[in-house]
Simulated assay, not measured.
Amino acid sequence: MTVRVTRALLRGLSPTDAAALWKVQQDSGAPVEAGLFASWLEDDANAAAWGKLEDAWSAFDAADDAVFEDLRAAALAAGPWNATTTPWRWVAGAAAAVAVIGGAALLLPRPAKPPVVADMRDAGDILVASGGAVKAIVLPDGSRMTLDVDSRARVAFGNGRRVSLDRGRALFDVRHDSAHPFSVAARGRTIIDVGTRFEVGVAPSSLRVALFEGGVRIEGGGSATVLRPGQAFVANAGKPDRVSLLAPGAEALWRQGLAEFDNATLAEAIEQLNASSEVKLVIVDPRVAALRVSGRFRLHDPLRFATTVAEILPVRVVRIDPARIELRYRR
């Protein structure tokens, strides 16, 4: 079933929703009043909404990133053309697709630099991933550590297998050795593993451990927590520890340099982004910190993230210095 686009239908829509409706109409061939589109475009607000939509959509036409192609295909398929769909539902679906496209066009830059590969033979090394590149390290026992951008770790393999993660994020693929457990120290906790694949993320006020395969035990803070594959452990300063389920494909997102948020506060999202970037986002206003964001974003381009957030939330972007960007409340 298709819906005829009429003046009466457009009258009840905002410029953004109406632009989404027009896009669906043009892609689907739904009937329309003669001359109605040109008449609608004469209004400045409508013309601005249409221009923004066209810019976002055209970014997908020219994209050479597979993530762009997947998102565009999903957006194009979002129009529910069936007999049970009401006009309001499919307009809302179209508007949601446009929001996804607009955010993705700004938040998904070209793929990050390939990992720098290092082969460690000596214990006691301090390892830093900088210069915008992820560092993949083969540890002395053959285990692998992938150190995210702007992350720092210390490795001690002289008596046991120990890594201390001082900042940032690291993905561990541990070689099995039941006689010599592998441990990671981070923010006063110790993550103990025998042979598995897991991620550890350190931020100024939080610790996150995600388990993809095998098993780990997290000790410290007056308690011990055992994770199963597909679970994540989060410890925030001043709050109870919690364990939650990982989103499907969480490890693949990590390897692609992506983060996925589901109604996270802006403070929570920025803390995760800051752990993977040399340029830091700063919030000083609790009203900004409490705003919420959802979606899948690239981790290593904080300025694009900030600019996009300013398009959809009441915030403005202030570049304090080359290494710091502040998000301020916009009245």
Rank of each mutant, 00 (worst) to 15 (best):
T308P: 00
P302M: 05
A235L: 11
L71Y: 03
H300F: 05
R208Y: 00
R154V: 10
P111W: 08
G51C: 04
E260D: 09
V134G: 02
R72Y: 09
A92T: 06
A133F: 09
D262L: 11
A38C: 06
D70E: 12
G221W: 11
S39N: 13
G132K: 10
R4G: 13
G214S: 00
N236E: 15
A264V: 01
L139G: 00
R167F: 07
E33V: 06
V284T: 15
D173Y: 08
D262K: 12
W88P: 07
R187M: 09
A104G: 15
R208V: 11
G142D: 00
L9S: 15
V174T: 01
S277V: 09
A112H: 11
V216P: 01
A185G: 05
A66W: 11
L127H: 06
H176A: 12
A133Y: 09
L303P: 06
A59R: 04
W254Q: 07
A203W: 00
A269V: 05
F157G: 01
T196G: 11
S151L: 03
V116I: 14
K239Q: 15
D27W: 07
G132E: 12
D321W: 08
R208Q: 15
F182Y: 09
R331C: 02
A75R: 00
R298Q: 14
A96G: 11
T85C: 04
E278Y: 06
A264N: 11
E54Q: 03
G214F: 04
V318T: 07
A59M: 03
A275T: 07
F212L: 14
G220A: 06
A95F: 01
L53V: 01
F297P: 11
W88A: 10
T146H: 00
V318D: 02
R287I: 05
T6P: 09
T86S: 15
S164K: 07
D241E: 09
F297C: 10
S294I: 09
A310R: 03
R189W: 03
P109Y: 04
S58T: 14
G93T: 00
D27H: 01
A123I: 00
A264Y: 07
D262N: 14
V226S: 14
F37S: 12
G195N: 03
D173N: 11
G238D: 05
S294Q: 08
G257V: 04
R144V: 15
L266K: 06
T307H: 08
S206A: 15
K239N: 08
I320L: 13
A250F: 08
S164C: 01
S14F: 04
W90P: 02
D285M: 07
D119P: 04
F198I: 09
D17N: 12
F172M: 04
L291Y: 02
L21T: 06
G222L: 07
D321F: 05
G102W: 00
I270C: 03
A224D: 11
D241P: 13
S164R: 14
